[in-house]
Design a protein around this nucleic acid. Structure first.
Lengths: 65, 65
DNA sequence: TGGCATTTAGGCATATATCCCTAAACTATT
DNA sequence: AATAGTTTAGGGATATATGCCTAAATGCCA
């Protein structure tokens, strides 16, 4: 989960998105983005899907690390 | 979520595993496997990770559909 | 047809993901 | 130094994922 969070941060920063911008695009709460990147929580598939969409990538690519 | 469930069922059957066998290997409840394949619930990353491991594939491959 | 494995179904309790909130800490940039 | 943007942090309420249980329905093979 921590590995996934690190990868997400990398992907987000590569698109020059702030956590707030990503949370807006994905329609998930900023606190969730923070906790997911930190590996504090264990996101659900729907949240992962929303994040992938907001990043303009597929779920498959979200896990390509 | 339903699409993911259908794909999971395909992957599981391709390995000739029953839901019960997969639930045992992944150490998750049989009722969860059923509900995930049916798209009734929204699994967490840790559950998805356990399923991928039990299938002998990566998370990336679990979402390759 | 009978029995066995598998899938489908639902109820209940517990853990926790998610949302909404406030606010502090950190990082530029001026 | 001061302001603005961003990240980090945590508390509380609600929704729901998960585990455990029982049992019915379905499929399959002897």
């Amino acid at each position: 989960m921590i590995a996934f969070g690190n990868n997400l941060r990398k992907l987000r920063q590569a698109k020059n998105l702030s956590m707030e911008a990503l949370s807006y695009e994905a329609d998930i709460d900023l606190s969730q983005v923070f906790r997911i990147e930190k590996g504090i929580i264990n996101p659900t598939l729907s949240t992962l899907h929303a994040i992938a969409n907001a990043l303009g990538i597929t779920l498959k690519d979200l896990f390509d690390y």
